[in-house]
Structures are given as C-alpha cells and as structure tokens.
Design a protein around this nucleic acid. Structure first.
Lengths: 335, 335
DNA sequence: CTGAAAGCGCTAACAC
DNA sequence: GTGTTAGCGCTTTCAG
C-alpha cells in the first residue's frame, strides 16, 4: 500500500513540490489560483498529510502521553477520557499508557513516550518514588503530574485538595451527629491517602473524636479488597461505629456488598461516605454520598498547563490544588 | 530541548553512525566489543530511539488506531481498554478516537489516523452507512470492524453473535416460565439491535409468544434514556408483562432506577435481563443477569486479525462471530 | 510568487 | 566488521 505524496501531486499539477507544500499547509505565500488548483488535485488524488514526516521536520508530534496507574479503576478511566478530550480540544492526540502501579513499568512507558517524541506527558505517579525514577526524563520533556501524590518535589502538578476533601467529608458526617467514624481503606504507601487521613485526623481532634482506621495493606484499591476488609470489620458485633468514611468509592462499593451480606443496612444502620465520585456512585440502588474529585477540571487544567509549557518554554512549575465538593446522595443519614 | 542522536553517540564512540544504529537496533552484524562499548555510551548519554525517524524509513509506526462511538459508554471503554492491552501485547501502541456517533466525525478521525500513518485501524462503526463513508480509506489501510453492525459488506469484522445472544436470553426467560416478555430499547438505526430483535422475535414465534417492543428513538444508549423509556412503560398499571429483556445493560440500569421509583421490585415483580455484561452489572445491589459480549476476546481477536493482515498483506476478509454467554445473577426469577 | 535544495534522525544497501 | 551514502516525505531558508 502506497500513499499519495506531495511529489505525486506536484507531478500532476506541474509545479514544484515546495509549492504544493505551501498550498496544503496554508503557510507561506502562494497565488490563490494555483492554490485552489492544487487543493482540488490533492483532494481528487486522495492525499493525506503525512504527519510522521511533518513531525520530523517540525520537531513536534502534536501528541501528548498519559500514564495512569490502572485503567480498570473507574476513576482512572474517567480521568483518562477527560484528558483525552481536553487534549483533542487543544489540538493534540493522546497516547494512553498504564504503569500498573509498578515503578519499573512506569519508567518503561515513560521512555517509550519520549521515544515517540510526544510533546508532553501527564502522569499519575505510581508511588512517592516516581519522581526520583522519572526525573532524568522529566528534564527532557514537559511533564505534569496529576495528583499531589508527591510531597515537596520540584514538579508541576494538579490535583484535588485531598486534605480539604477529607475535612469536608468528616465535618459532614459530624454535622449529621456521628461521633464514631471509621476511616476506611487508607493505603499506607500512598501519599494521597496520607493527606486524606491527615484531614480526617485533624477534624476528629478539633471535635474531640478519636480517629479510627481500617487500613488497606495492598498497593491498589478495588471493590474486592474493600469487600474483604469490610467483611472483617463487620464480623465484630455489635458495631461500635455509626459511620464509615471510605477512602475511595471503589472501596465503598465493596463495603456495600459486605454490608448486604451481613444484613447491615446503609444508611439505616451505618452511614457510608465515599471519595472520588466515580460514575458508579450515581447508579440506582447505590446512590453513594461522596467527596468529589473534579476529574474533568483536573484533566483540563493538566492539559492546559502542559500545553502552555510546551508553547512558552516557560519553565516555571505549576502547582494547582482544586477544591473538592460534597455530593450528597443517599448513603448517609442523621444519627 | 534537544535529544541525543545517533550522530552524537557516533562522535563520542568514534565510529560511524551506521555502526551505532547496528549496535542499538540489534540488526546487522557487529563486533561484540564495539557493541557493548556503544551500548554503554548511549546509556550514559541518555539516548532514546527516535521512533518518529525510524517510522519514516521503516514505513511502519507500530501504532494502531481505535475508533469507538462513545467513550462514556462503559461497554465502549471496557472494549477500548482490552484492545489497548492486546495491542500492547502484540507490540503496538494504540491511539484512541471517538466518533460520537457521527459519520462526519468518524470520517474525520479516520483521516487523522491515516495521516498519522497508523499501521491498522479498528473501528466500531457509527452507523450502517459507515462502510460507505469509510471505504475509500479502508482501501489504504488495514481495517477491521468491531461489531457486525454492517450487513453483508466486504469488510473484516469481529463481533458477538447478536442473534444467538438474544435467542439465548429469550429462551432463558421462557424457561423461567415467562410468557409476556418485552424487548426493551431497540434502536431502530442500529443493525446490531435489529439482529438482536430478530433473535427475540424468532424465539417468541417458536414458542407461540407475541413479540412486544419498547423502542428507543435515540441514536445512542444511556442510563437516562433507559430510565425515561421505563417510566413510560411503568406508568400503565397493572403491568401486563412479567419480564423485560433490555437491549443493553446501560438501559437496564435505567430500568432499575425507574422500577425503584415506581415501587416495582426486581426480580419479585418483574424479571430483568440485560445485554453486554458491563462491569456495572456485577455491582452489589445491581447484580444484573445478562447476556455477555466477550469483550476481551473480541478485542484480542480484532487486534490479532489486524496484525495478521498487516504482516501478511493477506487481503482475505475476516468474519468472526463469537458466541455469547449467559451470566446468571439475581435480576431474573421463576414465574 | 515559485523553484531548488538542505536537512530532520534513522535504516539498509552497497562498498571495502 | 565497519564506513559511506541514499533516501523516507516533509518544511523552510534562500534565490530568482
């Protein structure tokens, strides 16, 4: 299979191929008459611009890379969709990659993306160490992190304000009259989770409540591990808490399942609050009250920050913490 | 920002840059000693292969394109994830595009993909007319359709056997003792939906049941339109049917919501059967019985069919209809 | 306004 | 084994 090239058109139009290039790319001066003629011919011949060749001389692929930790996680796939959309609006394609929560794989796909000469990269860091692993490459290509999963590192990031989010959630639960609240599913390896936990702890302190945890020993979050953790939690009766603040909606779903099996009603017996506001949360019968991460906004900001850096060569770091929002549905009730 | 190139390495290593190319690409003969020396130098200098340049001479980008109709639809995003994964396993990247159910946009993104010189394209056709619109391009790049949403066209496709799927579903409902079954949410513009409806009708006929429909006038499927359609359906009491066969899980979710509001219990008052087996279906409280489309298998087959065509230049068309499977959960019960 | 030609970074024939 | 060189298809000076 052979594509039609500028030269082919030039031959037919009986002009130099530089002229054809000018006619098609719109840049450079060219007579309107020849321009129209060439345009018509190229259309007739089924010409398509070869962006690979163009990228080579322009030294820009108009492509961005996105690395997420796990595409099966609905939060990630929603974020990916929004990013893809924002990128397209800014005139960029997007290549999507998966680090599978592994530093090794993260490094590998990062290299792949720079090999493909993407103009910029957005990454949801796999771990706190991501910065160290990636920094030699970050020097070579504009990069922004999504998530503040990194404390005090010299990288651009945009994320929700996790601390504020859990303050918001905890205060809501307290305002409903709850005094025994369990913070559920904190992942010890995750800075994000620590940040959230800190907001919870601070709010408990302020209200003279004792912070309590049911931690998640695993590196990632799923319905299944939420379920398993909850089964254990529900096994000691009577329940000595009236509300659960789940560190992710995915985990909350696992809690719902375990509660169902244990005959515990939500919200009648225990209130349940999530974090993320993934699309599942809005489903009938689920209707989870949750702290929203503004995914669409996060994606848009990350893309536009990246594009700005690509264009301006401005080296200043961007640090944006977006405000969380409480989405009240039906999984919490007054005590 | 400037990347390290073969020439830079050649200068340092004091060899020709062809030698460097040989050392790095592994092809061609080269002395083991120089090879190791060059490898080390290139590592030290932070070299990354420029795949853009390589693509140009190799005339292959090792990239596939995937066009889906709507990424917010969970079925599509699951399919996209699986495809992406299969592609990577075969050594290809994937660029993901969205046609938004529009023929115009479908054509546009298709052009974009050929402009990017992807080695092959997988597309979930937006409509029956997709083939006509795309055919001039399909001639230029290996393409396979996912979905048999095209009747008797000379294109490769892989899809679930939709007809068999609705036969399977309908027979299941009948085996449970249901005689008044409504086929819900058929989209008149969709060949896939027609195929499914035909299986339903044939099975009804065979069992001397009267086929009944609640059609969806919209071009796409969502929880919301399932909900609206169901509200109307539930407004006439008493209900003159005992089971609903929803043409998609997404629609089924809308039905669940409407049923909840109308005080209709599933499965006690009416049985509900879905189609697709999206991940939502397995959620606690939802537990939808449904006819599964083997998404992972579909993705894998489509990718491998495509890769085979890319490699062999074999022009023969592939037509694969994968068997559906009934996934029994808790939304259907004996009458 | 248009043509000629260099060159982007790489691979692959062809020499030696 | 290693070097030389001709492109891949395009954009972009530089001439005219």
């Amino acid at each position: 299979m052979k594509y039609v090239t500028l030269k082919d058109i030039a031959r037919v139009a009986e002009v130099s191929y530089a002229t054809v290039s000018r006619a098609l790319s719109g840049s450079g001066e060219i007579g309107e008459a020849t321009r129209q003629r060439i345009l018509k011919i190229s259309r007739d011949m089924g010409y398509t611009t070869d962006y690979v060749a163009r990228a080579m001389v322009k030294r820009s692929t108009r492509t961005l890379g996105l690395i997420v930790t796990n595409l099966n996680n609905p939060f990630m796939s929603e974020l990916a969709n929004f990013s893809e959309q924002s990128a397209r609006e800014e005139g960029y394609e997007m290549i999507l990659c998966n680090s599978s929560h592994s530093l090794d794989q993260e490094k590998q796909v990062f290299q792949l993306l720079v090999g493909r000469r993407v103009d910029g990269i957005i990454v949801v860091p796999a771990e706190q160490e991501s910065y160290a692993v990636l920094s030699p490459y970050i020097a070579q290509v504009p990069t922004v992190f999504i998530s503040e999963n990194i404390r005090d590192m010299p990288v651009s990031f945009v994320s929700v304000d996790n601390y504020a989010g859990s303050v918001l959630g905890t205060e809501y639960l307290i305002s409903l009259g709850h005094r025994d609240i369990i913070y559920f599913g904190r992942r010890l390896v995750s800075v994000t989770h620590h940040l959230r936990a800190e907001g919870y702890i601070a709010t408990c302190m302020k209200n003279s409540l004792r912070p309590r945890f049911a931690d998640n020993p695993l590196p990632s979050t799923s319905i299944q591990n939420g379920y398993e953790l909850a089964v254990r939690l529900f096994s000691k009766r009577p329940l000595d808490f009236s509300a659960i603040f789940a560190s992710s909606d995915t985990n909350a779903l696992g809690i719902i399942k375990a509660a169902d099996e244990a005959g515990i009603r939500i919200p009648e017996d225990v209130s349940l609050l999530g974090f993320d506001n993934i699309s599942f949360a809005d489903l009938p019968k689920i209707e989870l009250t949750t702290v929203e991460q503004p995914k669409q906004q996060m994606a848009a900001r990350a893309v536009s920050a990246l594009v700005r850096r690509i264009r301006n060569e401005s080296d200043e770091l961007i640090k944006e913490k977006l405000p969380p929002r409480l989405v009240v549905r039906r999984s919490c009730k007054k005590r």
